[in-house]
Lab assay of single mutants.
Amino acid sequence: MTTFKLIINGKTLKGEITIEAVDAAEAEKIFKQYANDNGIDGEWTYDDATKTDTVTE
């Protein structure tokens, strides 16, 4: 398992969460579901060097 981080730069929700996932694709799926569940819809970027997804509304 690898640690992945999501940075949220939303209009109403800001912060970050960290998860353990098998790979980047699994982490992205989990993060996008989390964002959807919390009403966050924005531009996504991924930095492989830091294993960090960022969503900005």
Rank of each mutant, 00 (worst) to 15 (best):
L13K: 05
A21P: 01
K11H: 11
T18C: 14
Y46T: 04
K14L: 08
T18M: 09
V22C: 13
G39M: 05
A24D: 01
E43Y: 12
I19L: 06
I17A: 01
D48R: 09
A25D: 08
D47G: 04
A49Y: 09
I40P: 01
K14H: 08
N38C: 15
D23H: 04
I19K: 00
Y34M: 06
K29T: 07
A35N: 02
V55S: 07
G42R: 03
A25E: 12
G39Q: 04
A21K: 03
G39S: 06
T56D: 05
L13M: 11
T52L: 04
T45W: 10
G10S: 09
Q33E: 05
D37A: 12
K14F: 10
E28R: 15
K32I: 06
V55M: 06
E43S: 09
T2Q: 12
N9L: 12
E26K: 02
G42V: 08
E43T: 12
T3R: 12
G42Y: 09
I7K: 04
A35S: 03
T50M: 08
E43V: 13
V55K: 04
A27Y: 04
E16Q: 11
N9C: 15
T45C: 14
A21F: 12
E57C: 12
L6D: 01
L13S: 07
I30P: 00
D53H: 15
Y34D: 02
W44G: 01
D48P: 14
A27M: 05
I30L: 08
L13T: 06
D41R: 12
Y46R: 09
E20S: 10
T2H: 12
T56S: 06
D48G: 06
A27K: 03
F4S: 01
A27L: 06
T56G: 08
T2A: 07
K14E: 04
K32R: 14
G10Q: 03
K29I: 09
K32C: 13
A49R: 09
F31W: 07
E26I: 05
G39T: 03
A24P: 07
N36D: 10
N36T: 13
D48C: 13
W44T: 04
T52S: 05
K51M: 09
E20Y: 14
E28G: 07
D47I: 12
K32L: 08
L13H: 10
V22A: 10
K29A: 11
T50E: 03
T52I: 08
T3E: 06
A27F: 03
T2Y: 15
T45Y: 11
T12N: 09
A24W: 15
T52P: 03
E20I: 14
I17D: 00
F31N: 00
G15P: 09
G42C: 14
T50L: 08
N38I: 14
T52K: 04
D41E: 13
L13G: 07
W44Q: 01
T18R: 07
W44E: 02
E16I: 13
T54L: 07
F4V: 03
D23P: 03
A27T: 00
N9T: 05
A21M: 05
D48I: 13
D41W: 14
Y46F: 11
K5A: 02
T3H: 05
K11Q: 10
I8P: 00
I30A: 04
N38E: 04
E20D: 06
T56E: 07
I40K: 01
T45I: 08
E57S: 06
E57W: 09
A49E: 11
T54F: 09
E26S: 11
E26L: 03
T45G: 05
T52C: 12
W44D: 02
F4E: 01
A25Y: 10
M1E: 02
F31I: 03
Q33R: 11
T3G: 01
L6C: 14
A35Y: 05
Y46L: 05
N36E: 13
I7P: 00
A35H: 02
A49N: 09
T45K: 06
T12F: 14
A49I: 11
G42I: 09
K51R: 11
E43P: 04
V55G: 07
I8S: 00
A27Q: 01
E20F: 14
L6A: 01
L6Y: 12
G42D: 04
Y34V: 02
D37G: 04
T3L: 12
T50V: 05
E16T: 13
D48H: 12
T54H: 07
Q33T: 07
I19G: 00
A35G: 02
N36V: 13
E16D: 04
T3Y: 12
D53Y: 15
G10A: 08
I19N: 00
M1N: 04
I8H: 00
D37Y: 10
G15A: 15
G42P: 04
T2K: 12
T12M: 08
I30Q: 03
F31A: 01
G39W: 07
D47Y: 10
D37K: 09
E28K: 14
Q33N: 04
A24L: 13
K51L: 09
D41K: 12
K14G: 03
D53K: 15
E43H: 10
A27W: 05
I19A: 01
Q33V: 07
D41T: 12
T56M: 06
I8T: 01
T18Y: 13
Y46H: 11
T12W: 13
T3F: 13
I7C: 13
T12L: 09
T52H: 04
E16S: 10
T3N: 02
G15K: 13
A25R: 11
W44F: 04
K5W: 10
D48M: 10
L13Q: 06
N9S: 05
I8F: 11
A27E: 01
T50R: 05
A25N: 09
D47P: 05
D41P: 03
E26P: 00
T2E: 04
T50D: 04
N9R: 12
E16Y: 13
E20M: 14
M1W: 11
W44S: 02
T52W: 06
T56N: 07
L6Q: 00
E20K: 11
K29F: 09
D41G: 06
K32T: 04
A35D: 03
G42E: 05
D41I: 14
D48F: 12
A27P: 00
E26R: 05
I19Y: 02
K29S: 06
I7H: 02
A35E: 01
T50W: 07
T56L: 05
I17L: 11
I30Y: 13
T54I: 11
A21R: 03
F4L: 02
G10C: 15
K29G: 04
A49Q: 10
G15M: 15
T18L: 10
E16H: 09
F4T: 02
F31V: 01
E28Y: 14
F31Q: 00
E57L: 12
I7T: 01
G10P: 01
D41A: 11
K32H: 07
L13Y: 14
E43N: 09
D23I: 03
I7D: 00
E28C: 15
F4W: 10
I40H: 02
D23E: 02
M1P: 05
G15V: 15
T2I: 14
A25V: 11
M1R: 12
T45N: 07
N36M: 15
K32G: 02
A24S: 06
K11A: 10
N36Q: 14
I17N: 00
G42S: 04
F31G: 00
D23G: 04
D41Q: 12
E28A: 13
A24I: 13
A21G: 03
D48V: 12
D47S: 07
N9Y: 13
I40D: 01
T2W: 14
L6T: 01
G10F: 14
D47E: 09
I19D: 00
G10I: 13
D23V: 09
A49F: 10
Q33F: 06
F31E: 00
V55W: 06
K11E: 08
N36C: 14
K14A: 05
A35L: 13
K51G: 08
Q33C: 14
I17C: 14
I8Y: 07
K32Y: 05
T56K: 06
E28L: 15
G42K: 03
K5E: 02
E26H: 09
D53M: 15
Q33H: 05
T54Y: 11
M1I: 09
K14P: 05
N9F: 13
N38S: 10
I17R: 00
Y46N: 03
K11G: 08
Y46I: 09
